[in-house]
Each structure stands twice: as C-alpha cells, then as structure tokens.
C-alpha cells in the first residue's frame, strides 16, 4: 500500500511521457506517408505520355465554367425526383415492413404478396426495373400525363427502394426486444398501440443510419432515370459531351453529386457512431 502510493506519481509521469512519445510518433508517420503519396501523384501523373490530352478533355477549365450552370439547372430535376420519392419510399417501405411482421392470419395473403414483392425488387438491378416499368407502362398507350417515362421511371425507383427500405424497417422492428412488447402488453395496451407507441418509435431510431445509406444510394440512382428520357444532370452532361467533344461535363456532374452525397454520408456515419455510443452505454436489457 505504502510503496504503491510512493511510486505512484513518478510511474504516472513516466506513463504519460510514454503515451506522449507514442502519439507524436504516429502523427509523424502519418504526415510523412501523406506527403510522400501526394508527392508521387503530383510528380508521376503529369509524366504519363498522354496526360496533356486527358487534362484537356476531362479537366478543361473553360468547359467546366461553361457547363456548370447548365448542369446545375438539370440537377434540379434530380433533386425533385429525389424529393418526391423519399416520402413515398419511407411510407410504403414501412407499410410493407409492418405487413411482413404482422401475425394476423387474415393478413396471410398480404404477407405472402409482400415477400414476393421484396424478392422481385431486390433480385433485379434497379436499371432493369426502370427500363421495364418506364418503357413498359407508357407502352400501354395511356393518355397524358400517364404516359410520361419520367413518371414511370420514378415509380420504378420508388418500388425498388421501398423494398430495400422495408427490409431495413423490418430488421429494426424485429430488433426491438421482446421484453418491450411484453411490458407494453402487460399494461393493457393493445397490439396496435404497442406497435405504434413502443415498437415503431424505437425501431425507427435504430435504423436511421442504414436508412441514410439507402437514401444516399437513391440520390445517385435517380440519375438512372435519365436512361429512359428525362433530361436531368447525367443526360445533360452527355449532351454537352457530344456537343463539345469534351468529357469535362461528366466531371462537373460528379462534383455536383459529391456536394450532396458526401455531407449525407458523413451525417449517416455520425448518426451511426452516436447510436453505437448510446446503445453501448449502461442500458440494461432494453
């Protein structure tokens, strides 16, 4: 006891000094390796045989300035499609999830239908659904505005993403511990009230991070609708590319996408980290 307290302070100082040395060393290593890596890229890439031509056709400053406003305008359509789709996807995805976790025997046909729906949507690339629905349904010869590929492309997007999101919601609902339902039912709440007041709020909180990841993917996949006609950013970039025989418009489109998706991804990561901290805490058998 006595010897402990006498050696304590000096040992603590020594440990702090050691930690400090270690921390400095790792910072030094990280800095050196970054400088070396960036230096190699800057030195080597311009020495590639056709760098000048690549620079001209992908990173032309003039072309960038010329295309940027036009592409930004076209991007508004992407944002609109995204904004219409998100509430539909969240709502429909939740409905499908609820149908799949229901135990009511009367709902069996709906449950079976939902399983088939989710399997079909998840098992086929988004692009294929956009082609099938976006070209197929207007092909039925409907009148305006029901023959718009934009409309049916968006519908295809909503249907596929609703299936992904329904699986996220379902895992969230099933992740709420049985004891929570038991507690709610033991107090006399009905099955529906238990779901609405106890299970769903906890499930939604839990799945916000994976949900955000799906929304980031959706934001990018909106561009696929361009392949059946609507002139949104990707298609506009293609038009610009052909017109000016220059690939810079694609780089512009990439930059515009990044401005939206990077903050979204970072937010998702941050939410996930926060959720981990919260549930990794002191809560017992929630």
């Amino acid at each position: 006891m006595n010897s402990d307290s006498s050696t304590g302070p000096s040992r603590a100082t020594a440990r702090r000094a050691f930690e400090e040395r270690r921390r400095r060393r790792s910072i030094a290593i990280a800095t050196t390796s970054t400088v070396v890596f960036v230096g190699l890229v800057v030195l080597l890439v311009p020495r590639m045989p056709r760098w000048d031509r690549v620079k001209q056709s992908f990173f032309s400053g003039e072309q960038f300035a010329d295309s940027f406003p036009r592409l930004l305008d076209a991007f508004v359509l992407d944002l609109k499609i995204f904004a219409w789709s998100v509430p539909i996807i969240l709502g429909f995805g939740m409905l499908v999830a609820l149908a799949r976790v229901s135990r009511n025997p009367a709902l069996f046909p709906i449950r079976a239908l939902c399983v088939i729906y989710v399997d079909l949507m998840r098992g086929v690339p988004v692009l294929l659904w956009i082609y099938l629905i976006g070209f197929g349904v207007p092909g039925l010869g409907l009148d305006r505005p029901w023959n718009s590929p934009l409309l049916w492309g968006t519908v295809a997007l909503c249907l596929t993403y609703s299936s992904y999101v329904s699986e996220v919601f379902r895992s969230g609902i099933e992740g709420v511990h049985e004891s929570q339902r038991a507690a709610a039912r033991s107090l006399g709440l009905t099955h529906g009230q238990t779901l609405r007041l106890v299970v769903i709020p906890q499930a939604v909180r839990r799945v916000i991070p994976p949900l955000m990841n799906d929304l980031v993917s959706l934001q990018k996949d909106v561009a696929l609708v361009s392949l059946i006609g609507p002139i949104e950013i990707l298609r506009q970039a293609g038009i610009d590319k052909s017109k000016f025989a220059n690939f810079t418009p694609y780089v512009v489109a990439a930059v515009i996408f990044l401005c939206i998706t990077v903050p979204l991804t970072r937010t998702a990561d941050w939410l996930l980290a926060r959720e981990r901290r919260r549930t990794g805490g002191t809560r017992i058998a929630a």
Binding site: S179, A182, A183, S186
Partner: peptide, 14 residues
C-alpha cells in the same frame, strides 16, 4: 391486464 399489474426483473421501461 390493467387490473393485474406485472413488474419485470429487467424493468423494461420504454
């Protein structure tokens, strides 16, 4: 159930 309260080992607060 409203007339027969039950308290659990693991509390099960919401």
């Amino acid at each position: 159930r409203r007339d027969v309260g039950l308290v659990f080992q693991s509390y099960n607060l919401f």
